[in-house]
Amino acid sequence: MTAPIAASTITGTAASVAGEPMLVLEEVNTYYGQIHALQGVDLSVAEGEIVTLIGANGAGKTTTLKTISGLLHPRHGTVRFEGTDVSRTPAHLLVRRGIGHAPEGRRIFSRMSVLENLMMGAFTRETPTIPPDLERVMTLFPRLRERSHQLGGTLSGGEQQMLAIGRALMSHPRLLLLDEPSLGLSPILVQQIFAIIREINSQGTTVLLVEQNALQALSIAHRAYVLQTGRVVLAGPAKDVMSNETVRKAYLGED
């Protein structure tokens, strides 16, 4: 970490369309009680992008996603989504605004069937619009169709991850937050999941992806942010970040 690229020098590239990017975090400081978890995070995601957030355990990746989706609120700084300050907006209202969050640890409803889990994902939607979305998710994840009447808790890890992503998609998000979707999955499944993320993105959903599997994440992302102890220490196009010396050493397992 001798020469991190200053984040501020790169943020300009995020503004792809006219006006402000879809999601903007400015000087976000989030606390868990006394613990200062995010120490002034600046970040932006433009519409149509896949942006990944990489960093070590405890760097603040999950906290960043929770702050965006409203599960946590920043003590200082702002979160703007589509031009509106949503720093204080509770999570259940942000879903309606178009932020979908597949949280860390999948958090599926284990005592509900797969179908019910998906219906929960569509909680904010009008009933007639649900069937086509259900069809879309079932097409993306054929396994979910097979198991639609099985209880969530009885699914395998990979199936649960698919369910978590599918469930988040059911809310028809314009921005999808994915927290460690590859965690604990077999390499083949990891490939599948990343392929699906790319497909979701190509269908028009903006994705903010938190990953420990940095190589995979960087390979599908347009841009990347590197977090370290609650700060953005590096930001830029995924290719540049991937080629950054320190990143290669610290996160991509190269000497």
Partner: peptide, 19 residues
């Protein structure tokens, strides 16, 4: 369903839009 979801996982159901 929202009630059952909240009983199982309040945070996850908030992410579904459940108050």
């Amino acid at each position: 369903r929202a009630m059952r979801a909240t009983a199982q996982d309040q945070e996850a159901s908030a992410l579904m839009g459940v108050d």
